[in-house]
């Protein structure tokens, strides 16, 4: 294990919102994140999967500094970042959002959209800026003739290339990609995924890759986190999580993914019900109402993230592939294990 500091480390992130559920009823607390620990190393692509409402996007927004957590810290290179050094954080962490229609200013020309971060961060003189824009446009496969167009004249795939170019122009160390290809057609998605892989190889930029599409996460990422109702329920090297999932939820997610090669007919085991409301979370393990293996223990005690295999953690009393008899897995030393991610 290398002892170098992770590029980004989030510790104990908690976020909650006060929401009003009706005109007369009082405001209630919605727990969006319940203590998230996450690390991203240099040059690594880390996946984050989960159903809508599980807190993926909230986590992304906190890492980007777009909202402040109730508690918990975000460190970059071992140094805690605060709201005060917003600009410094933006210099190192850049977003690529899902909607390439909403994330580009419709009245600016592409050249200026891509150049804006250079201007904001005062990185180079104006004449150098346009050279950099042209070079990056070429790198992300954006035809030079489009640099003087406005976003409305571009296709969805071209807009996403613009968003990626804009994020990369100041050479950040980390890209937070929140569902970057969900709004795109499959053949365009393939182009964008290839592009991200090339950029990672050529520039060494690390990525947090958030997606609900497990096939894409398996293709793109080195390590992954599975979220359920504001908590990490499983994490580990992507290949391990796919070949031997520990959490029953991870397994259910995988069984919901269909590949064109399958001729297996319809899925046999499938998840019952919908994710519970974060306003009214279940007791014990948040997944127990939908879990086939749930017992009384699961209804009462919330499982901790514990070591499942080398480099993998899982929050389940009765993880898959582990013969634990009827005794729930006990907590070994999670603090030591967390360092191993």
């Amino acid at each position: 294990m290398t002892m170098s500091k992770p590029l980004l480390r989030a510790k104990g992130l908690v976020q909650s919102y006060r929401v009003k559920s009706g005109l007369l009823s009082g405001a209630r607390e919605l727990h969006a994140l319940k203590g998230i620990d996450l690390t991203i190393n240099r040059g690594e692509i880390v996946g984050l999967v989960g159903e809508s409402g599980c807190g993926k996007s909230t986590l992304a927004r906190i890492l980007l500094g777009l909202e402040q957590p109730v508690s918990g810290t975000v460190e970059v290179d071992g140094v805690p970042v605060t709201q005060a050094d917003k600009r410094a954080r933006a210099r190192r962490i850049q977003p690529v959002f899902q909607d390439p229609y909403g994330s580009l200013n419709p009245s600016m020309i592409i050249r200026d959209i891509i150049a804006l971060p250079l201007k904001v961060h005062q990185i180079c003189p104006a004449d150098e800026r346009m050279r950099r824009v042209a070079r990056l446009a070429d790198q992300v496969g954006l035809p030079a003739r489009l640099l003087d167009a406005v976003p409305g004249e571009l296709s969805g795939g071209q807009r996403q290339r613009v968003a990626i170019a804009r994020a990369l122009i100041i050479e950040p160390e980390l890209l937070i990609c929140d569902e970057p290809t969900s709004a795109l057609d499959v053949s365009v998605q393939a182009q964008i995924l290839n592009l991200l892989m090339d950029l990672r190889r050529d520039t060494g930029v690390a990525m947090l890759f958030i997606s609900h599409d497990l096939a894409v996460v398996e293709y793109m990422t080195d390590r992954m986190f599975v979220m359920y109702l504001g908590q990490i329920v499983e994490t580990g090297p992507t290949a391990d999580v796919f070949s031997a999932p520990g959490h029953h939820y991870t397994m259910a997610l995988q069984q919901s993914v269909f590949s064109p090669d399958d001729d297996a007919g319809l899925p046999t085991t499938r998840l019952k019900g919908n994710p519970p409301s974060p306003l009214d979370p279940p007791t014990g393990c948040a997944f127990h109402p939908r879990c086939e293996a749930a017992t009384g223990t699961c209804r009462e005690i919330s499982p901790e993230l514990v070591d499942l295999r080398k480099g993998g953690l899982c929050a389940c009393h009765f993880p898959l592939g582990v013969d634990s008899g009827n005794t729930p897995l006990t907590r070994s030393d999670p603090h030591a294990l967390r360092e191993s991610g």
């Binding site: 499959v186 995924l193 992507t238 064109p260």
Partner: peptide
């Protein structure tokens, strides 16, 4: 060919 397949990493 453009669809990511199970078991394949980029």
């Amino acid at each position: 060919r453009s669809v990511p397949r199970p078991g394949v990493n980029g």
